[in-house]
C-alpha cells in the first residue's frame, strides 16, 4: 500500500470522513510545507501520550485527577452526570455549574450493543456511596436513549443520594413558540416552573 493510500485509509476511519474526503485531506497535506504534516503528526503523538481518562470522573485530561476534580473550589456535593467528556466543556462554558462531574462514556443503545455494563455506572455508584454527594444531576441528552440512560442511572444511584434531578427540557433561548414542534412545547409545558 502506498503512503498516500495508507494515510487516506487511516483518515477514512474517522467519524464523518469518507474515502473521498480522506483522499482530499491527504492531498491537501501533500500540498502544504512538510512542517505542517510534521506538526500534525507530533500533535497526534502528544495526544496519545498525554491524554487519558481521569481516574475519578472519567473526563479526558492530561493530569490525573483532572483540573475539575482537583479544584478545591468546586462543590463536591453536586455531581453532574454526562454522556461524554465533550459535554463537560459545553456545561463549563456556561459558567453556571460549580460542582463536579461524572462521565458515563456513552448512553444505553441496544441497537449498538451498548448496555448498562458498558457505561461507567458502577464507578458512579461507588463515588456516591463513598459519601459527600447531596445531589446527582442527570445531564444525559434529552433524546429517548438519553432518557432511558437517565432512568437507569437514577435507579442505581437513587437509593444512595438525597436528590436526583434531571436537566430541564423545552423551548431554546431565543426560540419562537410558533416554530417549535409539538413534542418540545409539550415538554416545556409539563416541566414549567412557578414564578
Amino acid at each position: 500500500m502506498s503512503a498516500i493510500d495508507e494515510l487516506a485509509a487511516e483518515l477514512a476511519k474517522l467519524p464523518g470522513v469518507g474515502r473521498k474526503t480522506a483522499l482530499r485531506l491527504t492531498y491537501h497535506l501533500l500540498k502544504q510545507p512538510p512542517e505542517t504534516s510534521r506538526r500534525l503528526a507530533a500533535a497526534l503523538e502528544r495526544l496519545v501520550e498525554r491524554v487519558r481518562r481521569c481516574s475519578v470522573c472519567a473526563n479526558l485530561t492530561e493530569e490525573d485527577p483532572c483540573a475539575i476534580c482537583g479544584d478545591p473550589r468546586r462543590d463536591r456535593g453536586i455531581l453532574c452526570v454526562v454522556e461524554e467528556a465533550s459535554d463537560i466543556s459545553a456545561i463549563e462554558r456556561t459558567g453556571e455549574f460549580h460542582g463536579i462531574y461524572h462521565v458515563l462514556g456513552g448512553r444505553l443503545s441496544p441497537l449498538d450493543g451498548i448496555g448498562p455494563e458498558d457505561l461507567g455506572v458502577q464507578q458512579l455508584v461507588d463515588r456516591v456511596t463513598a459519601g459527600g454527594v447531596r445531589e446527582v444531576i442527570l445531564a444525559t441528552n434529552p433524546s429517548l436513549e438519553g432518557e432511558a440512560t437517565a432512568l437507569y442511572v437514577q435507579r442505581q444511584v437513587g437509593p444512595h443520594v438525597a436528590v436526583v434531578s434531571r436537566i430541564a427540557r423545552g423551548i431554546p433561548v431565543g426560540g419562537d413558540l410558533e416554530y417549535a414542534d409539538g413534542v418540545t412545547i409539550a415538554q416545556a409545558i409539563s416541566a414549567r416552573r412557578e414564578m
Partner: peptide, 14 residues
C-alpha cells in the same frame, strides 16, 4: 406522533 413513553421504562425501551 412521538413516543417518549418508550424511553420512560427500560423494559419498553429494550
Amino acid at each position: 406522533h412521538a413516543r417518549p413513553a418508550l424511553g420512560a421504562d427500560l423494559g419498553r425501551f429494550a
